[in-house]
Design a protein around this nucleic acid. Structure first.
Length: 842
RNA sequence: GCCUCGGUACUCCAACGGUAGAGAGGGCAGUCUCAAACACUGCACAGUGUCGGUUCAAAUCCGACUCGGGGCACCA
């Protein structure tokens, strides 16, 4: 009845881009106008400014992963920032001093590649894109504290990358070594292990090859145990999936190092095994073909030619070839023997590429009966297979399947009869006693290769002097800025473009003054992002990377939000940096991110959006069509935040409809601001308080979509109350609509602000405060109880929430339906669970 | 191959071992309108992957299978 009229009569603000005279245009509110209206006002009010000197609120640090400025924001950004905003805005409403900062991860290859294409400077492209993204974020109403912005390509920022590099260098955690490194022929640079995905470059998908180079590394392996063990702190706070991936990546294994005497060599060779219990089953030894040990062992054997051609062959193989599952085993027999320390057996020594040079000691004892790879090798070269663990499975000799389970040891001297665990303990202590070995650990994790042969990154602050060696650039000369890109050929060619900047490269040694050269490589950009979260609280400080006092105030990050693509790389590196800084006494915690939320991706028709697939949805188009609030709402409501959002399943127009319904409510409230809610209609008040309670709980448990559903229910209930219930003048209606505005402000800030104004309040609704939930309004007057017979529901009755088991049981047994069902049979047993259920076992 | 997460209505999502629901969506009807659209109101819509176990009671716990997603992948 009055519903429609009252909505229409509220005078609309003048429209900016619609026909004012179009009377038939319904009172659907004009999102474009509302967006333009509030942005400048928010710029003044600054509701999200954090860390004011007089702020006494408890702190909360909500962090979104910072963007790479590759162009304008896309759908993925929209989702990520919409979700981060829900959390940040919620904590603001709950009365916290929230720091929700943003910056730009601005070094990296795309800028450099764009510069090459346009024959210009990567700086130009980068800063242009940053300006575009920044403007888009403001329009998207991100609740960022804009006073803390920085870019990692600013010398004021990367100065501290260099400073940190030198600190790591001082501590022996940054070092150079010759090694076979991952080489991307597309990007013409080396890659960290973490950047090789299934044998391909994570950036350009080229097949990664190996190259022997001298490169800089960070010694992350020194922290392997701590990176693993400290995950106990994150249990239940980070997605289990991410923890699992990190554990997997670090890949700690326990076993033993065992010495084998080599005929004709004075030094024994140590091998690493996780199954020392199977030592008696070793029938040959395999050495990694590309290891130094192999090169040494082959000398004088007469098989050098064969060995060398084998080495050539495997070098040509890319990682992709190596990953093929059905790859046949290959190798060369070295004509030499090792002696099994426990039984004196002569073990032929082979080289093969299935043993990795950089894991363990690069040499293994082969136990073909109990290791599939060894068995495959033994079969390929007709080597003996000796079973030493009776597992009850078929003999590997005949089945071709190695047995890896537990069982009784056989053919193993003193170990006979023991099970696996006891045998490992026994042999380990025996080996240790005899000085032949000891228990050991190994990790899949390798040191972090940080050198890059590209221009657009942080220059490595080292000077190479022929007499002094690696000399750090003195701290007072930092930042060591990049040379001008002008005149440099940035095209990838396998060595750093910085090498061509001769004025820059040639420098006097800071120690002895001799003519020396700067290191021409730049740092992996993951160095930049490994500590940026520490910079926000002190982003305007220029004589230190961050202030201790600021760190103690704000860190660690309470809530981190970002994509699961960084589950290993960025998160592992950041955890590593934090631990190093903790050891340096610079931070007082050892895990940087207390809680982590990984949002899913935005996909289209089930697959990732991409130009080539032709399923790209432009964020700007969607915003133009439906408005910022509707897109944000659609993202949040589409499902649990961890799940992918399939844009073909969401309905932005449905979001617009809902927002309009909510907004229209604010025009139907006729009571004055400050009305006494306690005098309001109790049934609506109960709905309001339940919604506030449930939505708050849902937000805190990351079920934002459920929170939105609760608000939708409240909107519907309020609509009903206005039209056919207590009416718009009832204070309960004001209470409900104000609660809706506040709850909606987490997702749809423009609509919420507009509602808030129409309700007679001043901006900003973001600071209105989450209304206190009255527990008295959360109890229902009556609840529905079910009566079951043998677990099947027969009746439903309304009962008081305080009914006792006995009363409920009596009611149930007296119910006509139940009496009829039971007939003359007496129930065997009655289970009452007041006030919700009675089950009669008949 | 190994590890891991999941399978509920047309779709996307909910349900302390105890009533399978809410919201969205699409459909139909009514109100309003000259009419339509919008809006409002009402209605209908249909479901726990398979098999077994535990239990008074299983979507929920356990086991097997199956299907789908993700991760790791010659790490000894």
């Amino acid at each position: 009845m009055a519903c429609r009229g009252s909505g229409v009569q509220i005078p609309l603000a003048p429209r900016m881009n619609k026909n004012v005279n179009d009377e038939r245009e319904h009172a659907a509110y004009d999102f474009a106008y509302v967006q333009e209206k509030w942005l400048p006002i928010w710029d003044q009010v600054q509701p999200f400014k954090s860390g004011r000197a007089d702020d006494t609120r408890e702190k909360k640090y909500v962090l979104d992963m910072f963007p790479y400025p590759s162009g304008d924001l896309h759908m993925g950004h929209a989702e990520a920032y919409a979700l981060g905003d829900v959390i940040a805005r919620y904590w603001v409403q709950k009365g916290f001093n929230v720091m929700h900062p943003i910056a730009w991860d601005a070094f990296g290859l795309p800028a450099e590649n764009a510069a090459i294409k346009r024959n210009s400077d990567p700086r130009i492209w980068t800063y242009e894109n940053i300006a575009v993204q920044k403007a888009s974020m403001r329009r998207f109403a991100c609740s960022f504290d804009w006073d803390r912005v920085f870019n990692t390509c600013d010398p004021e920022y990367y100065k501290w990358n260099q400073w940190l590099f030198l600190k790591l260098h001082e501590r022996g955690l940054a070092y150079r070594k010759d090694s076979a490194v991952n080489w991307c022929p597309g990007c013409q640079t080396v890659l960290a292990n973490e950047q090789v995905v299934a044998g391909l470059c994570e950036r350009c998908d080229s097949a990664v090859t190996k190259k022997k180079l001298n490169q800089w590394y960070f010694k992350i392996t020194d922290y392997a145990d701590r990176l693993l063990d400290d995950m106990a702190q994150l249990e239940g706070k980070w997605p289990e999936k991410v923890l699992m991936m990190q554990r997997n990546w670090i890949g700690r294994s326990t076993g033993a190092n065992v010495s084998f005497v080599i005929e004709g060599r004075t030094e024994p060779v140590t091998i690493y095994t996780t199954r020392p219990d199977t030592l008696y089953g070793a029938t040959f030894m395999v050495v990694a073909a590309d290891s130094e040990l192999a090169a040494e062992l082959v000398v004088g054997t007469g098989v050098e030619t064969e060995f060398n051609s084998y080495l050539e062959k495997i070098k040509a193989d890319s990682d992709i070839d190596r990953l093929a599952t059905d790859r046949p085993k290959s190798g060369v027999f070295l004509n030499r023997y090792a002696i099994n320390p426990v039984n004196g057996a002569k073990l032929p020594i082979w080289v093969s590429d299935y043993v990795l040079a950089d894991y363990g000691t690069g040499a293994i004892m082969a136990v073909p009966a109990h290791d599939q790879r060894d068995l495959d090798f033994a079969k390929a070269f007709a080597l003996p297979v000796v079973v030493v663990v009776e597992t009850g499975e078929e003999d590997p000799n005949t089945s071709g399947v190695a047995t890896t389970g537990d069982g009784k040891l056989v053919n193993s001297g003193a170990l006979n009869g023991l099970n696996k665990a006891d045998a490992i303990a026994a042999i380990n202590s025996q080996l240790e006693k005899d000085g032949l070995g000891k228990s050991a650990r190994n990790y899949r994790l390798r040191d972090w290769l940080v050198s890059r042969q590209r221009y657009w990154g942080t220059p490595i602050p080292i000077i190479h002097c022929s007499s002094c060696g690696e000399v750090p650039v003195p701290a007072d000369q930092l930042p060591l800025t990049l040379p001008d890109a002008k005149g440099l050929d940035l095209k990838p060619k396998g060595t750093s473009p910085l090498g061509a900047a001769t004025d820059w490269v040639n420098v006097a040694c800071p120690k002895c003054g001799a003519a020396s050269k700067r290191d021409t490589d730049t740092m992996d950009t993951f160095v930049d992002s490994s500590w940026y979260y520490l910079r926000y609280p002190s982003s305007t400080v220029h004589d230190q990377p961050f202030l201790k006092k600021d760190i103690e105030t704000w860190l660690p990050v309470d809530q981190y939000v970002g994509g699961v693509t960084h589950a290993i790389l960025h998160l592992l590196y950041s955890r590593f940096f934090t631990k190093v800084l903790n050891d340096m006494g610079m931070v007082n915690f050892n895990e940087p991110f207390t809680r982590l939320l990984n949002q899913g991706m935005v996909v289209m028709d089930g697959s990732a959006m991409s130009k080539s697939r032709g399923n790209l949805v432009a964020l700007s188009d969607e915003l133009e069509k439906h408005g910022v609030d509707a897109i944000r709402l659609s993202m949040v409501f589409a499902g649990p935040p961890e799940d992918d959002v399939d844009w073909s399943d969401v309905s932005p127009s449905g979001s617009v409809k809902f927002l309009t319904r909510a907004w229209r409510l604010s025009g139907d409230v006729t009571s004055a601001p400050g009305a006494d809610f306690s005098k309001g209609d109790v049934s609506l008040r109960k709905v309001t308080h339940k919604a506030l309670n449930d939505a708050g709980f849902a937000v805190e448990s990351f079920r934002f979509n459920v929170a939105v559903a609760r608000v939708m229910e409240l909107v519907n209930a309020t609509r009903k109350a206005i039209d056919s219930g207590c009416g718009g003048s009832d204070p309960a209606v004001r209470e409900a609509v104000e609660a809706i505005a506040i709850m909606i402000s987490l997702v749809a800030p423009f609509t919420a602000e507009e509602m808030w104004e129409r309700l007679g309040h001043k901006p900003a609704v973001a600071l209105a405060g989450w209304p206190a939930v009255d527990p008295k309004l959360l109890v229902a007057d009556s609840v529905e109880a079910v009566i079951q017979i043998n677990g099947k529901i027969k009746e439903r009755i309304d009962v008081s929430p305080t009914i006792t088991d006995a009363e409920l049981e009596a009611l149930a047994l007296a119910h006509p339906t139940i009496v009829a069902e039971l007939g003359t049979n007496a129930p065997k047993k009655v289970i009452a669970r007041a006030p919700k259920l009675v089950n009669i076992v008949a």
